[in-house]
Simulated scan of single mutants.
Amino acid sequence: MRAERFDEPLAQRLADARHAPRDGEIVLYWLGQAGFVIDTAQARLLIDPYLSDTLARKYQGTRFPHTRMMPAPIAPHEFDRVDRVLCTHRHTDHMDPGTLQPLAERFPALRFVVPEASLDEALRRTGAGLDRLISVDAGQRVPVLDDCVVTPIASAHETLDIDEDGRHPWLGYVIEVHGVRLYHSGDCVPYPQLHERVRQARVDVALLPVNGRDAIRGGNGVPGNFTLDEAVELARAAHIPAMIAHHHGLFDFNTLAPETIDARIAREAGALSIHRAQTGCAWRIGPSTRTDG
């Protein structure tokens, strides 16, 4: 995985054919919080895009006003193409009506991959019809585009929950494109079976939240995520060669300082390559060369 810095606006970068992925290559861009662009030569996917101020309007005047620390790097109407949007769960910074509805209107053929346990909420938040939703649950293997398969893994946010029908409301996704496997955990904390489930997926790159959790946030309805050390431990235990640390830098009450992440990166030794999610950076991933089982 190779990181490239750039200065132009993300919309300009995505529309410029000179920077397009080559055949068999994946290019990642961070959208802030847990959001990413997954670009290939054939298709463009977004996962958990939060590109609005929905939460700032909802929580204005409260203890946690959800004021942005960073602007959205792109607006929904600035995308020249989106083929699929994946949402890991129903929380607004992952399933945002202020982002999803404009995208659904701009791209009539766009479909959304959502947890089956939150299908009704996804219908409301996307504003799209049922025929445009691809509902999934943990343990399935679901083709979502040509040469793109999604395998959901249950997440614990902060608890490992199931609904009355045995479905999981919090999901992570293993996204297999061109033989490369990306794992986006959604919002998650460690639980006993997670390392082995992810290891069995033979992941090439993990996209993991690192904002942690504490009693103050939890007591005010803000469930947390992996600490940075827990995310690194998961990547190592699951034999993942590279990870990108995200879910930081958007809300001041729910973040991790970039220098803390950079210091952890600087002292990392061994086979794991750690990157801090940041705007103005593209990560190019070539075909998988994994040979382990």
Results as ranks from 00 to 15, higher is better:
Arg2His: 10
Pro9Tyr: 03
Ala11Thr: 13
Gln12Pro: 03
Asp16Ser: 01
His19Asp: 14
Leu28Pro: 02
Trp30Tyr: 14
Gln33Trp: 14
Gly35Tyr: 06
Phe36Trp: 13
Leu46Met: 01
Ile47Ala: 01
Asp48Met: 02
Pro49Gln: 02
Pro49Glu: 04
Tyr50Lys: 05
Leu51Gly: 00
Leu51Cys: 08
Thr54His: 02
Leu55Ile: 11
Leu55Asp: 06
Ala56Asn: 10
Thr62Glu: 12
Pro65Glu: 02
Thr67Gln: 12
Arg68Glu: 04
His77Asp: 14
His77Met: 07
Phe79Pro: 03
Arg81Ser: 02
Asp83Leu: 01
Cys87Ser: 11
Gly98His: 08
Arg111Pro: 07
Phe112Asn: 04
Ala122Asp: 08
Thr126Val: 05
Ala128Lys: 05
Arg141Tyr: 06
Asp146Gln: 04
Cys148Trp: 03
Val149Asp: 00
His157Gln: 12
Thr159Ser: 13
Asp165Gln: 08
Pro169Cys: 02
Gly172Lys: 02
Gly172Gln: 00
Tyr173Lys: 03
Tyr173Ile: 08
Glu176Thr: 11
Glu176Phe: 00
His178Pro: 03
His184Met: 02
Pro192Phe: 07
Val203Phe: 00
Leu207Pro: 00
Asn211Cys: 14
Arg213Cys: 11
Ala215Pro: 04
Ala215Leu: 15
Val222Ser: 08
Pro223Gly: 12
Pro223Val: 07
Gly224Asp: 11
Ala237Trp: 07
Ala238Met: 03
Ala238Ile: 09
Leu250Ile: 15
Ala257Pro: 03
Glu259His: 13
Gly270Thr: 09
Gly270Pro: 03
Ala277Ser: 07
Ala277Gly: 11
Gly280Leu: 09
Trp283Tyr: 12
Gly293Ser: 13
